[in-house]
Protein backbone atom coordinates (compact mmCIF):
# COMPACT_ATOMS: atom_id res chain seq x y z
CA UNK A 1 0.00 0.00 0.00
CA UNK A 2 1.22 3.50 -0.62
CA UNK A 3 0.01 6.94 0.27
CA UNK A 4 0.93 10.11 2.05
CA UNK A 5 -0.20 11.04 5.52
CA UNK A 6 -1.24 14.65 5.98
CA UNK A 7 -2.21 16.79 8.96
CA UNK A 8 -5.11 19.16 8.35
CA UNK A 9 -5.32 22.66 9.83
CA UNK A 10 -6.08 23.13 13.54
CA UNK A 11 -9.76 24.11 13.49
CA UNK A 12 -10.05 25.14 17.16
CA UNK A 13 -8.83 28.27 18.90
CA UNK A 14 -5.69 27.04 20.65
CA UNK A 15 -3.51 29.76 22.10
CA UNK A 16 -0.30 30.62 20.28
CA UNK A 17 1.95 28.74 22.70
CA UNK A 18 -0.14 25.59 22.45
CA UNK A 19 0.04 25.75 18.66
CA UNK A 20 3.80 26.34 18.63
CA UNK A 21 4.39 23.44 21.01
CA UNK A 22 2.07 21.23 18.99
CA UNK A 23 3.82 21.94 15.69
CA UNK A 24 7.27 21.61 17.22
CA UNK A 25 6.38 18.08 18.27
CA UNK A 26 4.80 17.36 14.90
CA UNK A 27 7.97 18.59 13.18
CA UNK A 28 10.22 16.38 15.27
CA UNK A 29 8.15 13.27 15.89
CA UNK A 30 5.12 12.81 13.65
CA UNK A 31 5.44 10.65 10.52
CA UNK A 32 3.32 12.97 8.35
CA UNK A 33 4.37 14.20 4.90
CA UNK A 34 2.31 17.36 4.66
CA UNK A 35 1.02 19.87 7.21
CA UNK A 36 -1.79 22.33 6.40
CA UNK A 37 -1.44 25.57 8.36
CA UNK A 38 -3.79 28.50 8.80
CA UNK A 39 -6.96 29.80 10.42
CA UNK A 40 -9.92 28.27 8.56
CA UNK A 41 -12.83 29.08 10.87
CA UNK A 42 -12.73 32.61 12.26
CA UNK A 43 -11.03 35.71 10.87
CA UNK A 44 -10.98 37.26 14.35
CA UNK A 45 -8.56 34.61 15.56
CA UNK A 46 -5.89 35.17 12.91
CA UNK A 47 -3.87 37.97 14.63
CA UNK A 48 -2.98 35.68 17.54
CA UNK A 49 -0.84 33.37 15.46
CA UNK A 50 0.16 35.38 12.40
CA UNK A 51 3.47 36.56 13.83
CA UNK A 52 4.43 32.99 14.75
CA UNK A 53 3.71 31.53 11.31
CA UNK A 54 7.15 32.05 9.70
CA UNK A 55 8.89 30.36 12.62
CA UNK A 56 6.44 27.43 12.63
CA UNK A 57 6.70 26.99 8.86
CA UNK A 58 10.47 26.97 9.13
CA UNK A 59 10.41 24.45 11.96
CA UNK A 60 8.08 22.11 10.06
CA UNK A 61 10.14 22.35 6.87
CA UNK A 62 13.34 21.62 8.74
CA UNK A 63 11.52 18.54 10.04
CA UNK A 64 11.00 17.45 6.44
CA UNK A 65 7.32 18.32 6.18
CA UNK A 66 5.70 20.00 3.21
CA UNK A 67 3.72 23.02 4.38
CA UNK A 68 0.50 24.02 2.62
CA UNK A 69 -1.32 27.16 3.73
CA UNK A 70 -5.11 26.93 4.22
CA UNK A 71 -7.55 29.79 3.69
CA UNK A 72 -10.59 30.94 5.60
CA UNK A 73 -13.84 29.09 4.88
CA UNK A 74 -16.24 32.01 5.44
CA UNK A 75 -15.67 35.25 3.55
CA UNK A 76 -18.28 37.96 4.13
CA UNK A 77 -17.00 41.18 5.72
CA UNK A 78 -14.33 43.50 4.25
CA UNK A 79 -11.57 42.17 6.54
CA UNK A 80 -12.21 38.62 5.32
CA UNK A 81 -12.42 39.70 1.70
CA UNK A 82 -9.04 41.44 1.97
CA UNK A 83 -7.53 38.45 3.75
CA UNK A 84 -8.68 36.16 0.93
CA UNK A 85 -7.29 38.47 -1.76
CA UNK A 86 -3.89 38.65 -0.04
CA UNK A 87 -3.91 34.90 0.61
CA UNK A 88 -4.28 34.17 -3.09
CA UNK A 89 -1.14 36.24 -3.77
CA UNK A 90 1.04 33.87 -1.73
CA UNK A 91 3.85 32.61 -3.96
CA UNK A 92 6.28 30.80 -1.68
CA UNK A 93 3.97 27.96 -0.58
CA UNK A 94 1.19 25.85 -1.97
CA UNK A 95 -2.23 27.11 -0.88
CA UNK A 96 -5.51 25.39 -0.13
CA UNK A 97 -8.68 27.36 -0.92
CA UNK A 98 -11.76 26.87 1.24
CA UNK A 99 -14.14 29.52 -0.17
CA UNK A 100 -15.29 30.36 -3.69
CA UNK A 101 -14.07 33.95 -3.26
CA UNK A 102 -10.59 32.43 -3.60
CA UNK A 103 -11.46 30.97 -7.01
CA UNK A 104 -12.20 34.49 -8.22
CA UNK A 105 -8.70 35.68 -7.32
CA UNK A 106 -6.76 32.57 -8.23
CA UNK A 107 -7.72 32.39 -11.92
CA UNK A 108 -5.30 29.87 -13.32
CA UNK A 109 -2.62 29.84 -10.63
CA UNK A 110 -1.94 26.43 -9.09
CA UNK A 111 -3.87 25.68 -5.90
CA UNK A 112 -5.48 22.96 -3.79
CA UNK A 113 -9.19 22.66 -3.02
CA UNK A 114 -10.22 22.16 0.61
CA UNK A 115 -12.97 19.86 1.92
CA UNK A 116 -15.55 22.67 2.15
CA UNK A 117 -15.36 23.43 -1.59
CA UNK A 118 -18.15 20.99 -2.51
CA UNK A 119 -16.31 19.01 -5.17
CA UNK A 120 -18.76 16.11 -5.45
CA UNK A 121 -18.42 15.01 -9.09
CA UNK A 122 -16.02 14.56 -12.01
CA UNK A 123 -17.49 17.45 -14.02
CA UNK A 124 -16.83 19.93 -11.23
CA UNK A 125 -13.34 18.55 -10.67
CA UNK A 126 -12.56 18.69 -14.39
CA UNK A 127 -13.68 22.32 -14.59
CA UNK A 128 -11.65 23.33 -11.55
CA UNK A 129 -8.53 21.42 -12.58
CA UNK A 130 -8.69 23.29 -15.88
CA UNK A 131 -8.40 26.48 -13.80
CA UNK A 132 -5.34 25.44 -11.82
CA UNK A 133 -6.55 23.02 -9.13
CA UNK A 134 -3.91 20.32 -8.57
CA UNK A 135 -5.30 18.56 -5.51
CA UNK A 136 -8.68 18.08 -3.83
CA UNK A 137 -9.77 16.98 -0.38
CA UNK A 138 -13.23 15.46 -0.76
CA UNK A 139 -16.25 16.48 1.35
CA UNK A 140 -16.29 14.45 4.55
CA UNK A 141 -19.79 13.07 3.90
CA UNK A 142 -19.18 11.27 0.60
CA UNK A 143 -19.50 7.47 0.64
CA UNK A 144 -17.06 4.90 -0.76
CA UNK A 145 -18.72 4.71 -4.20
CA UNK A 146 -18.32 8.45 -4.72
CA UNK A 147 -14.72 8.44 -3.51
CA UNK A 148 -14.01 5.70 -6.06
CA UNK A 149 -15.57 7.71 -8.88
CA UNK A 150 -13.71 10.85 -7.86
CA UNK A 151 -10.38 9.03 -7.57
CA UNK A 152 -10.81 7.68 -11.11
CA UNK A 153 -11.77 11.10 -12.43
CA UNK A 154 -8.86 12.75 -10.62
CA UNK A 155 -6.40 10.27 -12.10
CA UNK A 156 -7.56 11.30 -15.58
CA UNK A 157 -7.00 14.96 -14.69
CA UNK A 158 -3.69 14.39 -12.89
CA UNK A 159 -5.18 15.72 -9.67
CA UNK A 160 -4.23 14.49 -6.19
CA UNK A 161 -7.08 13.12 -4.04
CA UNK A 162 -7.19 13.39 -0.26
CA UNK A 163 -9.72 11.98 2.23
CA UNK A 164 -10.10 12.76 5.92
CA UNK A 165 -9.42 9.56 7.84
CA UNK A 166 -9.31 10.79 11.43
CA UNK A 167 -10.86 13.45 13.65
CA UNK A 168 -14.17 15.20 14.18
CA UNK A 169 -16.16 15.69 10.97
CA UNK A 170 -17.05 19.26 10.03
CA UNK A 171 -20.84 19.16 9.62
CA UNK A 172 -21.84 22.80 9.17
CA UNK A 173 -20.63 26.39 9.18
CA UNK A 174 -22.70 29.50 9.81
CA UNK A 175 -22.44 33.27 9.87
CA UNK A 176 -23.40 33.17 13.55
CA UNK A 177 -20.97 32.27 16.33
CA UNK A 178 -22.58 29.60 18.52
CA UNK A 179 -19.77 29.76 21.03
CA UNK A 180 -20.58 33.42 21.65
CA UNK A 181 -24.31 32.60 21.74
CA UNK A 182 -23.79 29.92 24.41
CA UNK A 183 -22.19 32.62 26.57
CA UNK A 184 -24.93 35.15 25.74
CA UNK A 185 -22.59 37.22 23.61
CA UNK A 186 -22.46 38.07 19.91
CA UNK A 187 -19.71 37.40 17.40
CA UNK A 188 -18.45 41.00 17.60
CA UNK A 189 -17.99 40.93 21.40
CA UNK A 190 -17.17 37.22 21.81
CA UNK A 191 -14.06 37.82 23.97
CA UNK A 192 -12.72 34.62 22.37
CA UNK A 193 -14.62 32.24 24.64
CA UNK A 194 -13.97 29.51 22.07
CA UNK A 195 -10.49 29.25 23.59
CA UNK A 196 -12.06 27.46 26.56
CA UNK A 197 -12.83 24.40 24.41
CA UNK A 198 -9.69 23.20 22.59
CA UNK A 199 -11.55 20.11 21.35
CA UNK A 200 -14.88 21.87 20.74
CA UNK A 201 -17.80 22.73 23.06
CA UNK A 202 -19.95 19.62 23.53
CA UNK A 203 -23.68 19.80 22.79
CA UNK A 204 -25.70 17.16 24.62
CA UNK A 205 -29.33 16.32 23.86
CA UNK A 206 -32.03 16.81 26.53
CA UNK A 207 -32.01 13.04 27.01
CA UNK A 208 -28.29 13.08 27.76
CA UNK A 209 -26.82 11.91 24.46
CA UNK A 210 -23.48 13.45 23.43
CA UNK A 211 -24.32 14.73 19.94
CA UNK A 212 -22.26 17.53 18.37
CA UNK A 213 -19.50 19.98 19.24
CA UNK A 214 -19.41 23.69 18.51
CA UNK A 215 -16.28 25.53 17.39
CA UNK A 216 -17.23 29.17 16.89
CA UNK A 217 -19.24 29.35 13.65
CA UNK A 218 -18.58 25.66 12.97
CA UNK A 219 -20.50 22.58 14.08
CA UNK A 220 -18.69 19.25 14.12
CA UNK A 221 -19.49 15.65 14.97
CA UNK A 222 -19.08 14.57 18.57
CA UNK A 223 -17.62 11.30 17.33
CA UNK A 224 -14.14 11.04 15.87
CA UNK A 225 -14.35 9.92 12.28
CA UNK A 226 -11.93 7.01 11.81
CA UNK A 227 -11.22 5.20 8.54
CA UNK A 228 -8.05 3.37 9.59
CA UNK A 229 -9.54 0.03 8.53
CA UNK A 230 -10.65 1.36 5.14
CA UNK A 231 -7.29 2.78 4.09
CA UNK A 232 -6.24 -0.22 1.98
CA UNK A 233 -9.54 -0.06 0.12
CA UNK A 234 -9.06 3.67 -0.47
CA UNK A 235 -5.48 3.25 -1.65
CA UNK A 236 -6.58 0.55 -4.11
CA UNK A 237 -9.11 3.02 -5.55
CA UNK A 238 -6.43 5.64 -6.09
CA UNK A 239 -6.70 7.87 -3.03
CA UNK A 240 -3.14 9.01 -2.40
CA UNK A 241 -3.42 11.29 0.64
CA UNK A 242 -4.91 10.57 4.04
CA UNK A 243 -5.76 13.50 6.31
CA UNK A 244 -5.65 13.52 10.08
CA UNK A 245 -7.51 16.41 11.72
CA UNK A 246 -5.82 17.78 14.85
CA UNK A 247 -7.71 17.05 18.07
CA UNK A 248 -6.67 17.86 21.63
CA UNK A 249 -5.10 14.43 22.11
CA UNK A 250 -1.72 12.82 21.40
CA UNK A 251 -1.69 13.41 17.63
CA UNK A 252 1.85 12.10 17.31
CA UNK A 253 0.67 8.73 18.57
CA UNK A 254 -2.31 8.84 16.20
CA UNK A 255 0.00 9.65 13.29
CA UNK A 256 2.22 6.67 14.14
CA UNK A 257 -0.77 4.32 14.06
CA UNK A 258 -1.87 5.59 10.64
CA UNK A 259 1.68 5.59 9.26
CA UNK A 260 2.18 2.00 10.41
CA UNK A 261 -1.08 1.09 8.71
CA UNK A 262 -0.20 2.85 5.44
CA UNK A 263 3.23 1.22 5.39
CA UNK A 264 1.59 -2.16 5.96
CA UNK A 265 3.37 -2.81 9.26
CA UNK A 266 0.04 -3.45 10.99
CA UNK A 267 -3.42 -4.56 9.88
CA UNK A 268 -6.65 -2.60 10.17
CA UNK A 269 -7.90 -4.36 13.29
CA UNK A 270 -4.63 -3.82 15.13
CA UNK A 271 -4.56 -0.17 14.09
CA UNK A 272 -8.05 0.34 15.45
CA UNK A 273 -7.19 -1.48 18.67
CA UNK A 274 -4.21 0.82 19.18
CA UNK A 275 -6.39 3.90 18.69
CA UNK A 276 -9.01 2.58 21.09
CA UNK A 277 -6.29 1.86 23.66
CA UNK A 278 -5.55 5.61 23.68
CA UNK A 279 -8.83 6.20 25.56
CA UNK A 280 -10.02 8.80 23.10
CA UNK A 281 -12.57 11.28 24.52
CA UNK A 282 -15.26 10.33 21.99
CA UNK A 283 -16.43 7.22 20.15
CA UNK A 284 -15.21 6.43 16.64
CA UNK A 285 -17.49 6.64 13.60
CA UNK A 286 -17.25 5.62 9.94
CA UNK A 287 -20.89 5.77 8.81
CA UNK A 288 -20.38 8.32 6.02
CA UNK A 289 -17.91 6.04 4.24
CA UNK A 290 -20.41 3.19 4.32
CA UNK A 291 -23.28 5.35 3.06
CA UNK A 292 -24.97 5.28 6.46
CA UNK A 293 -25.67 7.72 9.27
CA UNK A 294 -22.39 9.54 9.83
CA UNK A 295 -22.38 8.92 13.58
CA UNK A 296 -22.45 5.13 13.21
CA UNK A 297 -19.64 2.69 13.59
CA UNK A 298 -19.90 -0.04 10.97
CA UNK A 299 -17.82 -3.06 11.95
CA UNK A 300 -15.51 -4.38 9.26
CA UNK A 301 -16.99 -7.39 7.45
CA UNK A 302 -14.94 -10.56 7.80
CA UNK A 303 -13.26 -11.14 4.46
Amino acid sequence: MSGKLTLGPILYHWDADAKRDFYARIADEAPVDTVYLGEVICSKRTPFFESHLPEVIDRLERGGKQVVLSSLSEVVIPRERNMMRDFCDIEDHEIEINNTAGLFHIDGKKHRLGPLMNVYNEATLKWLSGKGATHVTLPVEVPRSVVGGMAAGARDQGVGVEVQVFGRASLAVSARCYHARAHRRTKDNCQFVCEENPDGMPLTTVTGQPFLVVNGIQTLSYSYLCLVEEIDDMAAMGVGHFRLMPQDIDMVAVAHVFADRIEGRIGGAEARARLEAMNLPAPLSNGFWHGREGHRWQPRMAS
Binding site: N118, P139, E141, V146, L171, A172, V173, R296
Partner: peptide, 21 residues
Protein backbone atom coordinates in the same frame (compact mmCIF):
# COMPACT_ATOMS: atom_id res chain seq x y z
CA UNK B 1 -31.98 28.40 7.75
CA UNK B 2 -29.11 28.92 10.18
CA UNK B 3 -26.27 27.09 8.58
CA UNK B 4 -24.51 28.19 5.42
CA UNK B 5 -26.61 26.51 2.75
CA UNK B 6 -24.82 23.91 0.70
CA UNK B 7 -22.36 23.35 3.55
CA UNK B 8 -24.56 21.44 6.02
CA UNK B 9 -24.21 17.69 6.62
CA UNK B 10 -26.09 17.57 9.92
CA UNK B 11 -28.99 15.60 8.44
CA UNK B 12 -26.61 13.07 6.89
CA UNK B 13 -24.78 12.63 10.20
CA UNK B 14 -28.08 11.73 11.88
CA UNK B 15 -30.10 10.00 9.14
CA UNK B 16 -27.74 8.77 6.42
CA UNK B 17 -29.50 11.02 3.87
CA UNK B 18 -27.65 14.08 2.64
CA UNK B 19 -28.95 17.59 2.05
CA UNK B 20 -26.34 18.27 -0.62
CA UNK B 21 -26.38 14.87 -2.35
Amino acid sequence: GLMVEGRCSLTNYVTGLSTNM
